Amino acid sequence: MPVGPFINCLSTLLGALIGAFLGKKIPERLRLNLPLTFGAASMGMGISMVVKVHMLPPVILSLLLGSAIGELLKLEKGIEWCAQKVRGPIQKIFPSDNSIVGSQENFMQQFVGIVVLFSASGTGIFGALNEGITGDPSILISKSFLDFFTAAIFATALGYIVTTTVIPQFVILFGLFFLAGIIMPLTTPEMIADFSACGGIIMFVTGLRISGIKAFPIANMLPALLIVMFISNYWTAFFG
């Protein structure tokens, strides 16, 4: 029973619905300042994962190669295109206040950031795999608290479109939960450590983006998560 993925997706959906419903009823100081806290929390979680690294070179190599792949595939542009296609119909049903949303660039920067934070963070991916093997949902339940409040606050500005982030989150978390029995036996503690470190770096720069400090192309960095354990395994075999 995928308890963790279910709770995580439900918390994101409820947070987005509540935040979008409340809208301007949330004081402006909370809408402006809490995202900074969420960004700081993401950076803190990222740092806690990076310090578990086994070997840094394969992690850095994975990030470089993964980012190159993401740039060539234009993953971030793809997410932005999907967001634009979905945003129009949703705004017709639930009109939003553009003065809250801000510029198109600001909207995309925030939306892509939360999609990655909810769906493809190292914590979420590892939590789903870990529960699939051990049955322990604690990692994803802990992540659910952050996702609930993050979705609520960002939905006050972005509107009901934040609910659509549950779709990739559901697909990824449930998919990994059911694939865990195949993936985890092929890994080693060293590979998991480097995977966590790679995810931690992506979470750290996601925090920078959510806080409005620097708009890293985080979606384009995601392929690194697919190749880091493979590179870590062979790096350890040849140089470890």
Rank of each mutant, 00 (worst) to 15 (best):
E28H: 11
E28L: 12
E28T: 11
E28W: 10
E28M: 13
R29T: 15
L30N: 06
L30T: 06
R31G: 07
R31I: 05
R31T: 11
L32Y: 13
N33M: 14
L34Y: 05
P35T: 03
P35L: 06
G39N: 02
A40S: 10
A41R: 11
A41I: 14
M43R: 00
G44T: 11
M45P: 08
M45S: 09
M45G: 12
G46C: 00
G46W: 00
I47V: 14
S48W: 04
M49G: 05
V50E: 07
K52S: 13
K52H: 11
V53A: 07
H54S: 13
M55Y: 15
L56A: 05
L56M: 07
L56S: 08
P57A: 01
P58L: 01
V59A: 03
I60V: 10
L61W: 01
L61D: 01
L64V: 12
L64C: 14
L65D: 01
L65T: 05
A68R: 11
A68H: 07
I69C: 12
G70I: 04
G70R: 02
G70F: 04
L73C: 12
K74H: 12
K74G: 08
L75C: 08
L75Y: 10
E76R: 01
K77R: 15
K77Y: 11
K77L: 15
I79L: 15
E80N: 12
W81H: 14
C82D: 13
P89S: 00
P89K: 03
I90S: 02
F94G: 03
F94M: 03
F94I: 02
F94P: 08
S96C: 13
N98T: 14
S99G: 11
V101K: 08
V101A: 09
G102V: 05
G102R: 02
G102C: 03
Q104W: 15
N106Q: 11
N106K: 11
F107Y: 08
F107W: 05
Q109M: 14
Q110E: 14
Q110M: 10
Q110T: 08
Q110F: 05
V112G: 01
G113K: 02
I114A: 02
V115I: 06
V115H: 06
V116F: 04
L117V: 09
S119M: 02
A120L: 15
S121E: 03
T123W: 06
G124F: 00
G124T: 05
I125E: 08
F126K: 06
G127Q: 04
G127M: 03
G127Y: 02
A128M: 07
A128C: 05
A128T: 10
L129P: 04
L129S: 05
L129I: 03
N130I: 06
N130P: 09
E131H: 03
I133K: 10
I133L: 07
T134W: 07
T134M: 09
G135D: 00
P137C: 09
S138G: 00
S138F: 04
S138V: 08
I139F: 02
I139G: 04
S142Y: 10
S142R: 01
K143R: 03
S144H: 06
S144F: 00
D147I: 02
F149T: 00
F149S: 00
I153E: 03
F154Y: 09
A155M: 08
A155S: 09
A157F: 09
A157M: 13
A157S: 15
L158S: 03
L158W: 01
L158T: 00
